[in-house]
């Protein structure tokens, strides 16, 4: 499927990479896609405005029930691409070059994930944290404070996922879906 430039939506005038967007996903305005590898967005996911998805090096896969907030940059680090699990919440101003982000992970405001890093499931990265390249975070880790780590034993995973679903629900009502702009 040849990528076609849609209306006056995205900032880039380059051809869009091949996108397969689930019909239940919500994409807002002003999202920029660049690169040539395919980008997959799972069911029920929400992308806020001004996200940048860069798939020049590899494909990007976003799972279901994800929320990607504004001004984030998702960059595929290498040919294996970037894979986000389900129920992932990426907050504002993040710069993600990780290889894999596990399910139910919260990546808070302003985090930087280095190239090729691998984040486990159910992790929480507090705001402004930095994960170095090729770092591996096991499951249930919390990164907080001055890059300190601890194991999260708070058993709030279920509650969190439900909150995510409610959040997505709410966002769907508030953000107009502009995904048609990006798929021809």
């Amino acid at each position: 499927m040849g990528p076609k430039r849609s209306g006056a939506s995205s900032a880039s005038s380059a051809p869009l990479p091949p996108l397969s967007i689930d019909p239940t996903a919500v994409l807002s305005d002003a999202i920029s896609f660049s690169g040539t590898y395919p980008v997959t967005i799972g069911a029920n996911s929400v992308l806020h405005p001004r996200c940048k998805l860069n798939s020049t090096e590899g494909p990007i896969v976003i799972g279901s029930n994800c929320i990607i907030s504004e001004r984030t940059q998702l960059i595929a680090p290498d040919i294996d691409g970037l894979v986000l699990g389900n129920y992932v919440h990426v907050e504002v101003n993040c710069h993600i070059q990780a290889a894999r982000i596990g399910d139910a992970t919260s990546i808070e405001v302003g985090t930087k994930l280095g190239k090729g890093s691998c984040i486990g499931d159910n992790c929480t990265l507090s705001p402004l944290s930095t994960i170095r390249d090729v770092d591996v975070l096991p499951a249930f880790t919390v990164v907080y404070g001055e890059n300190q780590r601890r194991v999260d034993a708070s058993a709030t995973a279920v509650a969190r996922n439900e909150t995510m679903l409610a959040h997505i629900d709410c966002l769907k009502k508030l953000i107009p879906n502009k995904s048609e702009k990006y798929t021809r």
């Binding site: 929480t124 507090s126 919390v142 907080y144 404070g145 601890r150 999260d152 034993a153 708070s154 058993a155």
Partner: peptide, 13 residues
């Protein structure tokens, strides 16, 4: 429980 929203510590720990 008492729950810390920054580091996810709870009194169950």
């Amino acid at each position: 429980n008492l729950f810390c929203s920054h580091c996810h510590w709870t009194t169950s720990d």
